[in-house]
């Protein structure tokens, strides 16, 4: 099946005080219909910037897409101007933001905020838009929708607000839904509810979802495929099983090692030492080398290409080169991998 969205060699830069930040440096991935792709990485790894680029929300003139293609519906979104993107945003592509407390307009009624996109893209009358908005509020599980329509965001709790944001995003039946850490700002119990809601909606509407998170626990629960980003690049991509049970990139090992599990009380959490590199002057070679305890000499000289592990799985690390020594993931990571399977089953 043809992918619905195909991103090729995407580069995003920002001009800042200190110089040009290369926030995204050649990202490739594709998304199929009805599929959920999770993008994981530390803050500053470029995952949010990547999705902003998909939405055409990179702030010009500081931000630019100097290279790359975003193929969607036969068009290259990277080449469209703002006017053309307006017709696609909210209709075919829509987005859920991280912090529901700040992402709703505080002085506009909830109903109006949901109806706005409907009137804009589907040319519905006010009455039709209202009916559809009520439907949507029902769909996302907000009780008393008629009454809630006429309320302002501050009258909603955080979880309820995120439901409203999801309703706004779903209003026009988008083909691709981008969720930028939709649960990070919420309480744990609410997080689970929102995740369930998204899974439920995806089943009903067959939407493709790009799910950005730094929480691997969530990934195991929602995603079909996972892309791990580091310093503006995808370093490993594969199905959930590939990445969780057969991780190849030392950075992925690090991420898995730092993941707490239900029964991890006896061992320490592993932390990845150091901080992500400065993307104004990206280091030579593999950007992760300096923090990598399994670094090879070549990591400091040349960037690793994507090595194919299987049809669905590839990773950018020299450890996969035929000349590389055999290195096994650390024992804690292996244990952790086992832990995830237990937890994953318990949740589903």
């Amino acid at each position: 099946m043809d992918p619905i969205l195909d991103v090729k060699n995407l580069n995003v830069t920002f001009d800042t005080y200190g110089g040009k930040v290369q926030a995204v440096r050649g990202v490739n991935f594709s998304l199929k219909k009805g599929e959920t792709l999770a993008i994981v990485g530390e803050s500053g790894s470029g995952k949010s910037v990547t999705t902003k680029a998909l939405m055409g929300l990179i702030k010009k003139p500081a931000g630019k897409i100097p290279e790359g293609e975003i193929l969607f519906d036969g068009k290259d979104l990277a080449k469209l101007d703002n006017k053309q993107m307006q017709k696609i945003r909210g209709k075919d592509l829509s987005m859920i933001f991280q912090d529901p407390m700040t992402s709703l307009n505080p002085t506009m009624k909830i109903g109006k905020q949901i109806m706005e996109g409907l009137i804009l893209h589907q040319k519905l009358s006010k009455q039709q838009a209202k009916e559809r908005a009520l439907e949507l509020l029902n769909l996302v599980g907000i009780p008393y929708p008629e009454k809630r329509m006429n309320q302002y965001p501050h009258q909603f709790s955080g979880g309820m607000r995120q439901r409203v944001v999801i309703a706004i995003a779903l209003a026009c039946n988008p083909k691709v839904l981008i969720a930028d850490e939709p649960t990070t700002a919420l309480d744990v119990t609410i997080q689970a509810q929102i995740i369930e809601l998204m899974k439920d909606i995806q089943k009903k509407m067959d939407t493709s979802i790009i799910f950005i998170t730094h929480d691997l626990g969530v990934v195991a629960n929602v995603a079909d495929r996972v892309a791990v980003m580091y310093a503006g690049k995808i370093v490993e991509i594969g199905t959930v099983d590939d990445v969780f049970y057969n991780p190849k990139h030392p950075y992925t090992w690090g991420l898995l090692g730092s993941l707490p599990t239900v029964d991890s009380n006896e061992e320490k959490l592993m932390a990845i030492p150091g901080t992500p590199p400065d993307l104004i002057h990206p280091p030579k070679g593999d950007a992760f080398a300096a923090r990598n305890e399994f670094a090879l000499a070549i990591d400091f000289e040349e960037e690793p290409p994507m090595f194919k592990v299987s049809d669905t799985h590839s990773a950018a690390t020299w450890l996969l080169h035929e000349n590389a020594p055999d290195i096994e993931p650390p024992a804690t990571v292996k244990k952790r991998m086992a832990g995830i399977s237990v937890e994953g089953e318990r949740q589903s």
Partner: peptide, 28 residues
């Protein structure tokens, strides 16, 4: 602010963003 970004993500035009979303919140 985030809610202006969300309005953009909804596909609202620049003019609408200025006058419908931003102006009122800035004027208060």
């Amino acid at each position: 602010s985030d809610y202006i970004e969300l309005a953009r993500a909804k596909g609202v035009s620049n003019n609408s963003i200025m006058f419908k979303h931003a102006l009122r919140n800035a004027l208060i």
